[in-house]
Amino acid sequence: MKLSWWKLLCIVLLSYVLLGGLLMDVPRKAILNETIRNIYYHVPMWFGMMVLCGISVYHSIRFLRKPDMLSDIKATSYAATGMLYGALGIITGAIWAKYTWGKPWSNDIKQVGAAIALLIYAAYFVLRNSITDIDKRARVGAVYNIFAFAMLLPALWIIPRMMESLHPGGMGNPGADPRDMDARMRLIFWPAAVPGFIILGIWISSLTVRIRKIEDKNLLHV
């Protein structure tokens, strides 16, 4: 079995995140305590989701410019993996919130944003399934994907900065709050956890693309 370099890199990075994330020392903070390790697994899900959904939109744009079924397959595969990451992000967040904020769901603006993102992508798949014509399905799906993504970005990037939130970095940077991580944690988070999970998502999507390519061989004319 021969793996390309980026797949090996993914395995190395994620092994490091798994071992280092669970074993290496972390700062002791009130309330957070050891749960701060979840930052290695919860936050990269959102980075991964944004990247995967971005790739999905890129392929949707490519489909509209030059109709090609392969672009459509890629767009849906990346969107599906993005949804998986979003669901995992909500679940890891809910578990974390149960032990730190006291309950798994507190209508925090970022939780709402994540739920909106999942609903939008669920609607994307429902819309696709409601159209039987394959070309039309791909085209209408691509239009909705682009439109929904453009509407989603302000919801995820601008509104959380304007409203009060339980998440760290509210009214400022809604992503990772640098104040919560010390140098040791950053050594795992930025070089390994974020890129590792993004590459894993691309890997999963590329596998679904390959399966779909075999399944829809007669549609692709290759």
Partner: peptide
């Protein structure tokens, strides 16, 4: 315009529209 291309217009509009409009409604 999108839903007009698919069957089950009204229900699809609600499914597609509500998540998209939530941020604006909240604001």
């Amino acid at each position: 315009a999108i839903a007009a291309k698919a069957q089950q217009q009204a229900s699809l509009m609600a499914i597609m529209g509500f998540p998209i409009i939530i941020p604006q409604l909240l604001l």
